[in-house]
Design a protein around this nucleic acid. Structure first.
Length: 954
RNA sequence: GCCCGGAUGGCGGAAUUGGUAGACGCGUCAGACUCAAAAUCUGGUAUCAGCAAUGAUGUGCAGGUUCGAUUCCUGUUCCGGGCACCA
């Protein structure tokens, strides 16, 4: 084999090529890749499939900073690696393009969201292309594209037209439910919401079951209202998180600490007509599914906590009120074993029956308390957790010992969870304990010495005392006994509860998918499929419509057609996009079944942890529903999830003396950032003109239209040194580093490898540009290994020596292992070691270099292509096979000896020795130590490394 | 408050199953090349003592298990993340 000489005649370009001209190389190969459609992926292949997916970005106006590509680079490396391993790899990219920022921008600047989104996307694309990703761009999806959201609307219609069959634990067409109602009423399928009561003759009844005859007697409108109670996507009135500033409702996961996740605006509870997804029906399957998928433990725990499954019982207590006969009150508890320790009851203030049981004497106080609760915002409730409450004057009766238990109301009990009422056991529950202490309610001790009178003890291991028929029993055993007795008495039953609520699915905004829903006399009907997509209409203004409705309510034609004026939330499009990538141009189906059967689950999903309880739960639910309805063949979307850490910004500060234009170097300030007793302002300086900590004063003067042009600088050692802090990377903090600049300066390959070299992908860390030189030097060194400045390309066809083979095969093994376990930083190190060793050996043999170049391809694809061609290959390195390592070259011979320690034989010792030249030495050493053991001579210390003994100390 | 995760040189980090702690890179020091600088190359670089060979100490802190612990166990401090009245 010979190497192709691409050295040009002109001296200039000869120099350029000699010096690893990454700019030229990268442009050249990127153009070739496009021309040859190198990354186009077929939907059929004799090769096994592998699906690598990135969480697609929201195309914001700010563009990419160095934090964004971290996950993309990791997934790109893994995709290329899998390709080289012989897989047909699907690695697509697209845009999550519906959302609030584009709409806010439209409100402020009057630019149509479609236009600003389009601009942002083309900017993103340019930035992504610079880095040399192997995305199959023919499969690009955009959630705001009508060709895409046609199918988001279609899936919505599937959810609308199905219900969750609890007996079979799966979604089924609503027609099955109707057939069942016509046959036997709702006996087999009770209302998902247990609190739902039928309305008979215009009166709310106490019944929540109906027979076939009744069903048939209901008019169409009422039948539809009942069906709505079952649909997987349904419309109803409910308390929602309303954000006035954003003019829309938010899902629970979009509210953080009582304010909106986006923008931090206040959020209040409001009763509104809303669309929901009945995700609660999937709670159990979402929980069970976690067992078969590879998410990090932290991620699984977050989802588990969010679902919040708990096992317990509902117990009915008779109520004694001065008003006479009262229906019993129902509480939910996970600890029925503590029933003899109940000293008071607490009811959520919102419950209507509170007023009914309140005694005359307590009436005013209760009213006062209810007013107080109403005046407290969600945020206040969360911020200051005061102990508050009020006695109602009524009592509940303990069914086992007849004790009268005072009924209180307090805001610490939530109306929305369980029955909205609890039995309080102060000796066992911290909140109940504090409440009892605060209001001087006597505390019954049922756990003997486990309770110290100072704090509650939630143990299950105590032996019960003062507990009637369960006296002397272990608490954890008593749980079942009590439930059995309650069921026997017909006043209680086993009950599982979930913290998770149904997901709010509508937004009063413009820039989202319109619902394919038309209202007729208050009944929602989906549009015929042939009318899809229901296009988002043009509007004149993006401001909200009347009565908390969205901008679509301002369009007369829209309203006249009685079309739904809400739009879908951001997570609608992202809940299924991984399916569309498989079959992105299909105009007849959301995704052809045989295609989705081929690609199946996403094998590796890469993205941040911030979507733990939002996107990742929703897309899991959609997948399960689509699977139940027979549209796809798997019910978990993502087999393995890799969470990349955040890259933080390392901000730089300059210090200006108050009221002056004088800047003082950081080292001259005291601990309070004061200079000779004068206070200073701490001002962000753009990190791009700070070298380490040293400010480039000239650039700083020119910054911000010369705002600081006349600044004076008090220097230390002729330098102005900045202060620093790690903060979130953001434009406003002037700590963003643009990948484009780095790619221009060092090349995409250096940039890619450096991002990986920073540390484990999963870990968050501040960005530091300094180290990039080291990786760049490595690539230059690699280049020089092939290219001698004086003699040109220097690759021979000589046979490699054992030492060279050992370097190669050691590296293959290491890179393969590291890549498989996503340890990209150590893999990059291994490349560096390999090239150092080969340089030392002056190894320029094609037999060694060629596999090295192929191995390098996932990490640095451009230089790999260039070198591969220079090695005389006509095909692309992208089509090569990842080298396999030859164990023989790095194998060791092993001998087995019995080893005794302290006089007794403890184990057999595998003593391995290098196949290399030190063999005799190693063996001698091994023999010596074993001999000593056998002779009983003391050896102070012997040292093994991976089963190989390397030293003894006599 | 509860639940996870982490703590290793001046810095980022490595040590995959309990086996020479500090790979690799940055920074830094010295040297080579150069009139000089840059670039490049070579060597040193955990700490303390010593000219050196070498010795002692060393993975947040205190203990434990083990022939041997960054790794396992118990306690503790600090940092990061998640959840937060879910009965």
């Amino acid at each position: 084999m010979l190497f192709a000489c691409i050295v040009n005649d002109s001296k200039k370009s000869r120099r350029v090529i000699m010096e690893y001209n990454f700019n030229e190389i990268e442009k050249k190969w990127q153009a070739k890749w496009i021309e040859s459609k190198a990354y186009s992926v077929p939907n059929q292949s004799p090769r096994p499939k592998y699906y690598v997916l990135d969480m697609f970005p929201y195309p914001s106006g700010a563009g990419l900073h160095v934090g964004h590509p971290l996950g993309y680079i990791a997934s790109d490396i893994f995709s290329r690696y899998k390709r080289l391993k012989g897989f047909n790899v699907l690695h697509p990219m697209g845009y999550d393009a519906f959302g609030l920022p584009a709409e806010q921008y439209a409100i402020e600047h009057g630019v149509h969201p479609a236009i600003s989104t389009e601009q942002n996307i083309s900017n993103f694309r340019k930035q992504l292309d610079n880095i040399g990703f192997c995305f199959d761009w023919e499969r690009e999806v955009r959630t705001c594209d009508p060709k895409y959201y046609k199918w988001t609307q279609w899936i919505f219609m599937q959810l609308f037209s199905s219900f969750f069959n609890r007996q079979k634990q799966k979604a089924e067409p609503i027609s099955e439910l109707i057939a069942s109602f016509e046959r036997e009423g709702n006996a087999a399928h009770p209302f998902p919401n247990e609190k739902f009561k039928l309305t008979v003759n215009g009166q709310l009844s106490t019944a929540n079951s109906f027979g076939a005859d009744e069903w048939l007697s209901f008019d169409e409108t009422y039948q539809q209202a009942i069906l709505m109670e079952y649909r997987l996507a349904y419309c109803g009135y409910g308390e929602v998180n309303w954000c006035e500033a954003l003019g829309t409702v938010l899902a629970n996961d979009e509210v953080v600490n009582g304010v909106s996740e986006r923008g931090g605006h206040p959020v209040v509870k409001k009763k509104l007509r809303q669309w929901y997804l009945r995700i609660t029906e999937y709670a159990d399957r979402l929980l069970k599914g976690l067992e078969q998928i590879e998410f990090s433990d932290a991620m699984k725990e977050m989802q588990t906590n969010w679902i919040g499954k708990s096992y317990g019982a509902e117990i009915d207590f008779a109520v004694k009120s001065e008003k006479g006969n009262m229906p019993s009150m129902r509480v939910y508890t996970t600890r029925p074993d503590t029933i003899f320790g109940v000293d008071f009851m607490v009811v959520a203030p919102e419950l209507a029956w509170v007023k009914e049981v309140t005694s005359a004497a307590q009436h005013d106080e209760v009213e006062k308390y209810l007013d107080y609760v109403n005046s407290r915002s969600e945020r206040e409730r969360q911020a200051e957790k005061k102990i508050t409450g009020c006695f109602t004057g009524a009592y509940a009766i303990n069914p086992f010992d007849g004790r009268e238990i005072p009924i209180w109301i307090s805001e610490y009990v939530l109306a929305g969870y369980g029955t909205g009422a609890i039995m309080a056991v102060p000796c066992g529950d911290e909140r109940d304990f504090k409440f009892a202490r605060y209001f001087n309610i006597p505390i019954t001790n049922i756990i003997g010495s486990f309770y110290n009178g100072e704090e509650a003890n939630p143990t299950k291991d105590a032996t019960l005392e003062n507990s009637g028929f369960i006296n002397g029993m272990l608490m954890r055993d008593a749980i079942e006994v009590v439930i059995a007795r309650l069921e026997e008495m017909g006043i209680g039953k086993r009950k599982v509860n979930y913290k998770m609520r149904d997901a709010a699915f509508s937004r009063q905004r413009y820039w989202g998918e319109p619902f394919p829903v038309q209202w007729q006399q208050g009944v929602a009907h989906t549009l015929p499929e042939t009318d899809l997509p229901l296009l988002l209409p043009e509007v004149e203004s993006y401001s909200p419509g009347p009565e908390g409705e969205g901008p679509l309510a301002n369009i007369p034609e829209w309203v006249a057609r009685e079309l739904e004026t809400n739009t879908m939330p951001g997570y609608a499009g992202s809940s299924w996009y991984f399916l569309r990538y498989m079959d992105p141009h299909n105009e007849n189906e959301f995704c052809n079944r045989s295609v989705s059967d081929y690609w199946n689950q996403v094998d590796l999903y890469v993205g941040g942890t911030e979507h733990a309880v939002g996107h990742l739960l929703y897309s899991r639910m959609w997948t399960k529903a689509l699977h139940d309805l027979g549209h796809i063949g798997f019910d978990e979307p993502f087999k393995k999830l890799l969470n990349q850490g955040m890259i933080q910004g390392s901000s730089r500060f300059v210090y200006r003396i108050n009221g002056t234009n004088t800047f003082v170097s950081k080292g001259l300030l005291d601990g309070n950032d004061e200079y000779n007793g004068q206070k200073t302002d701490k001002i962000h300086a753009d990190v791009n003109f700070v070298d380490g900590y040293e400010l480039d004063i000239e650039s700083f003067r020119k910054w911000r239209n010369g705002e600081y042009a006349n600044g004076k600088f008090i220097l230390e050692e002729d330098k102005y040194l900045c202060g620093s802090e790690v903060e979130k990377m953001s434009k406003s903090k002037f700590n963003t580093v643009n990948p484009d600049d780095l790619v221009n300066r060092y090349g995409a390959d250096t940039f890619r490898m450096y991002e990986m070299f920073l540390g484990p992908v999963e870990v968050s860390k501040p960005w530091d540009t300094k180290g990039i030189e080291g990786v760049h030097r490595f690539l230059k060194k690699l280049w020089r290994l092939f290219y001698d400045e004086m003699k040109g390309w220097m690759v021979t066809n000589d046979a490699p020596t054992p030492a060279e083979l050992k370097v190669l095969h050691k590296t293959i093994k290491k890179i393969e292992d590291d890549t498989e376990r996503f340890s990209f930083n150590t893999a990059v190190s291994a490349f560096m070691v390999c090239v150092n060793e080969l340089s030392e050996l002056k190894c320029r043999k094609a037999a060694i270099l060629e596999p090295l170049v192929i191995m390098l391809t996932p990490y640095a694809p451009h230089i790999s292509e260039e070198l591969y061609v220079s090695l005389g290959n006509t095909s692309s390195v992208l089509d090569a096979a990842f080298p396999t390592f030859n164990a023989a070259h790095i194998a060791e011979s092993t001998k087995e000896y019995p080893v005794s320690i302290n006089g007794k034989v403890r184990t057999t010792m595998h003593i391995s020795v290098d196949a290399g030249q030190e063999e005799a030495e190693q063996l001698a050493l091994a023999n010596e130590v074993v001999q000593r053991w056998l002779e009983g001579k003391p050896v102070k210390k012997f040292i093994f490394v991976k089963g190989r003994m390397i030293n003894i100390v006599a």
